[in-house]
């Protein structure tokens, strides 16, 4: 199954808020580790290396200012 990029979240604002909440009290190093743990947990949940590679490629391209 290819990477799904169409809207899938019922309440995107709630997700965004949860992410901000998780990072709120953290310094730079802790934030990095939190994001890394999050990526790893979600990657394992997805469990499909091709989908993950597609996501990495998309994310890599997406840093134009």
């Amino acid at each position: 199954m290819p990477l799904q990029t169409e809207p899938r979240l019922a309440d995107p604002d709630a997700l965004y808020e949860a992410l901000m909440q998780a990072h709120r009290a953290l310094d730079e190093a802790r934030s990095r580790r939190l994001d890394a743990r999050l990526v790893l947990l979600l990657a394992n949940h997805i469990g499909d290396l091709e989908v993950l590679r597609e996501a990495i490629a998309l994310a890599t391209q997406g840093d134009e200012p």
Binding site: A29, R32, R33, D35, A36, R37, L40
Partner: peptide
């Protein structure tokens, strides 16, 4: 680099 360090530590924590 710092990202690699964060991922390494995240793996060890998990």
């Amino acid at each position: 680099n710092t990202a690699a360090h964060a991922y390494r530590d995240a793996v060890l924590q998990l």
